[in-house]
């Protein structure tokens, strides 16, 4: 259990700078999700906290102590890898116990701690098996178990769910979150999946090209994005971006207006300020996504409740919204408030 502080952390590979100065203060027990498209540097940032990558500039502090030059083992962190990285020749017990064995923990204590972790993760029946005899979800649990038996100061997760099927992913997402809550251990979690980010994070860091575009609680980021990238990346389907001329009230300097699909309503084409043609409809049951192409060729998505009447494909529809829900962005893609 610990606080983690990143202060203007930068990373360069040769002459290419990949992390352009990220700062965040993480409170004890907080669950932080780093989210961004692939190649944005989120894994590199995590690996710098872990000690697997050197830190080019800036400082990483764990519990107030600078750890820039410490080996991973001296930082007292535990990491869960994307491919689990289980030792293939060791049993589940051996995998979980390995870190403790190296730390020269007494045998009886190792056994007790592994048993306890196995119980939490429902792995008791599998302790003697080899990783290859386990399913993907079980391997994932073993990787978790290896992290929790160490009682580390922080958990670092590097896209731990990306190799699981959709259903298992939802389940493990809940389990990891519940476990972190129960143990109260600070966690840093890297993912490209915004749903994981939204559901698990206390706060999230939205990254693009090595820059932390926005840091904040998920709903705060969702409802109040700082720039066009965040508005587009967080939320599915993505925010609609339309020409500023459509909203006469737009402040000066507006280059785009953004409006989330759920804030757009279908209206009668007659008398509507904006009309378009329905391209296609995705009826998902609880909700319906209506894809509309506007007169100027822009595509827009409308998300409406499943029980509302669905327009026919090819029909002309009007679009309406509340001004309060429209976001304005300037030419630098920054939010105008």
């Amino acid at each position: 259990m610990a606080t983690i502080r990143l202060d203007n952390v930068k990373k360069s590979f040769g002459k290419t700078q990949v992390i352009h100065g990220v700062s965040i203060d993480i409170a004890d027990g907080e669950f932080i999700v780093i989210v961004g498209p692939s190649g944005c540097g989120k894994s590199t940032l995590l690996r710098m906290v872990a000690g697997l990558e050197t830190i080019t500039d800036g400082t990483v502090e764990i519990d107030g102590a600078r750890v820039n030059d410490d080996e991973p083992m001296d930082r007292d962190i535990a990491m869960v890898f994307q491919n689990y990285a289980l030792y293939p020749h060791m049993s589940v017990f051996g995998n979980m116990a390995y870190g403790l064995k190296i730390a020269r923990t007494p045998k009886a204590e190792i056994k007790a701690r592994v048993q306890a972790a196995a119980k939490t993760l429902q792995l008791e029946a599998y302790l003697d098996r080899k990783p290859r005899e386990l399913s993907g979800g079980q391997r994932q649990r073993v990787a978790m178990g290896r992290a929790i038996v160490r009682k580390p100061k922080a958990f670092l997760f590097d896209e731990p769910l990306s190799n699981l099927d959709a259903k298992l992913r939802v389940q493990m997402r809940l389990e990891i979150h519940a476990l972190q809550r129960e143990l109260g251990i600070t966690a840093l979690y890297v993912t490209h999946d915004q749903i994981e980010a939204m559901t698990m994070a206390d706060r999230m860091i939205v990254m693009r090209d090595g820059v932390a575009e926005q840091i904040g609680a998920p709903l705060e980021v969702y409802e109040n994005p700082d720039n066009r990238f965040v508005a587009e990346f967080i939320g599915s389907p993505a925010t609609n971006f339309l020409a500023p001329a459509l909203v006469p009230e737009a402040p000066a300097g507006t280059a785009w207006i953004g409006i989330r699909p759920e804030h757009v309503k279908l209206a009668e084409a007659e008398g509507a300020s904006l009309t378009g043609k329905v391209l296609h409809i995705e009826a998902l049951g609880a909700e319906t996504l209506v894809h509309v192409v506007l007169a100027d060729g822009t595509h827009a998505t409308v998300r409406q409740e499943g029980h509302l009447p669905k327009p026919a494909e090819g029909a002309r529809v009007g679009l309406a919204w509340h001004l309060a829900e429209v976001m304005f962005f300037d030419t630098q893609e920054r939010r105008l408030r």
């Binding site: 991973p72 990491m79 491919n83 390995y98």
Partner: peptide
């Protein structure tokens, strides 16, 4: 051998010879 294995061992506290 996947690099992640070496990294996992490093996080577990194994020095290179270990």
């Amino acid at each position: 051998v996947p690099d992640e294995l070496a990294e996992a061992a490093r996080v577990d506290g194994a020095r290179p010879m270990r």
